[in-house]
């Protein structure tokens, strides 16, 4: 493997990776995939660039304020590597459009900022058999896990029920240091490239955690759960539910983004 933009491995050059969310995690992941020469990069995000995004969403710049994130990101990726194809999906991932959006891609990167959407991605990917990388970040902590559906541990193996937004602090509530997003997003990009190239081992059955304050990287071995409601021996989740929508708010550090405000904006 020659990791240069002009000579990616054929399997990387022909690979198709979908990034859900072009924010804190998705920005560095997208830049890394373009530089690695991943042939087709899909971007999903319904939002526009806001000032409070810029401290960590490194693909966007001040001149992009108000522009759709997918458009802003596509422009930067093509500037870095004009040999890649960047497909933009300016919409919110939902149970209804997930099969259509996931279908063309080899690997999915969950770079979203909401609890429910992360479980929607997990459930959709496992039901469709689509490999993906989960990551979550908040304040000074982050974690990531790669899932090969029905072969390795999924999110539901660890957390059978979707945690309520009240139990899981969001970046909006708790804040986040921008570099943390870069650290975890880059790991996700490495997983996607390794999946395509076949090099090394994937981050499966191991939850990689990063505590920036300690500081400490640590991999916790996690096993598939026979009682997993999604990929266990007698699953209770056999289809995507339209109730699995993201009710959490975006990682806007400025704190001005309210649920009502965002919903209103999305309906425009």
């Amino acid at each position: 493997m020659k990791p240069t933009p002009t000579s990616p491995a054929p399997r990387v050059r022909e690979g198709k990776v979908l990034i859900v969310g072009v924010g804190g995690l998705g920005s560095p992941a997208a830049l890394a995939l373009a530089l690695a020469g991943v042939g087709t990069i899909g971007l999903i995000d319904p939002d526009a660039v806001e000032l409070s995004n810029l401290q960590r969403q490194i693909v966007h710049q001040t001149a992009d304020l108000g522009r759709p994130k997918v458009v802003s990101a596509r422009e930067k990726l093509l500037r870095l590597n004009s040999a890649v194809e960047v497909i933009t999906h300016h919409e919110r991932l939902q149970a209804e459009n997930l099969p259509r959006l996931f279908h063309p891609y080899d690997f999915v990167i969950d770079a979203t900022d909401g609890v429910a959407t992360k479980f929607l991605i997990n459930d959709g990917a496992v039901l469709l058999g689509k490999p993906f990388s989960y990551a979550g970040i908040v304040q000074f902590s982050g974690q990531t896990l790669t899932v090969l559906p029905r072969q390795t541990t999924c999110l539901r193996c660890l957390f059978p029920d979707i945690p309520s937004a009240d139990d899981v602090p969001t970046c909006q509530e708790a804040g986040i240091i921008g570099s943390l997003a870069g650290s975890l997003g880059m790991v996700q990009a490495a997983e996607a490239v390794k999946y395509l190239s076949g090099d090394g081992e994937l981050l499966t059955d191991r939850l990689l955690t990063y505590e920036a304050l300690a500081p400490r990287w640590r991999a916790v071995t996690v096993k598939r759960n026979p009682r997993c409601p999604l990929c266990g021996v007698s699953p209770t989740i056999t289809a995507l539910s339209s109730e699995e929508q993201d009710q959490t708010i975006s990682c806007a550090v400025g704190g001005e983004t309210s649920v009502e405000w965002k919903r209103e904006k999305e309906s425009v």
Partner: peptide
Amino acid sequence: IEVVHFVGGG
């Protein structure tokens, strides 16, 4: 014992 939190931000 490993105690793992769900982290949902991004």
